[in-house]
Amino acid sequence: MTDTDPAAETSLRWFLKGVTKLVSVPAAVLVTAQIGFVALARDIGFSLPEILVITLSVWALPGQVVYVGALASGSGWIATMLAVSLSSMRFLPMLMSWVPVVRGERSTRLKLLGLSHFVAVTSWVFTMSEMPSTPRQVRLAYFAGFALALVVANLVAITVAYQLVGHVPAWVSAALLMLTPLYFLLALGGAGKVIDDYVAMGMGLLLGPALYAAGIGLDLLWTGIIGGTVAYAVGRVRRRST
């Protein structure tokens, strides 16, 4: 089991196979959406190193956008922290469903916690679509290859985009700034499964601008709590009655 560990060799092969999955539509869309985030954050006044650290350390586009948006609108740090955290709550059910799918005999909790850093919408969808046809003992290696390749591709794209964004015509920068809301809107709408999801989306789309315009402060927090609770209540009544 020293120099020719067949299990390690297989893991490496699946890791590399994961890297090649970088050439796929979801990965391309994510990289494009990250470029939209660069346009937004640069516009607000964040430096390239700050944008790279935000992306790498948070690794969740909605949380990143909430963070730079909240700081830009002058929110205090407690309000910003709560808003970022609420926007990332989806990771709790996402990770709970990710672990049983990728876990193999050799997956320690430490490995799972380490790789959990890289679970976001794109890599979660990759997991759910690729893993059922992948041998269980190499699933974590396969995931790691894809996830780390995605990280590297995004950091490179951000660095290049940051240099270019300041020098493109206004219509290109308007189109880039539109990428983030578009990507979220379509991805979120496509991920909806039950009535709760659609009511929550509708309520959020209405309350977000309305509460912002009303100028009451903490508008995103209230949008989430009010809209989400109403959606939950609607879904609950529906489930009870059927």
Binding site: D43, P181, F184, L188, A200, M203, G227, G228, G235
Partner: peptide, 29 residues
């Protein structure tokens, strides 16, 4: 979990709409 998921969905949707209704930079033109 149903409640958590709904709150997160509403919050992110609110953010999406804010980015469309009250954009920054060139998109505001």
């Amino acid at each position: 979990f149903r409640w958590i998921k709904s709150v997160a969905t509403a919050l992110v949707s609110g953010l999406i709409a804010q980015l469309i209704f009250f954009p920054k930079g060139a998109l505001a033109d």
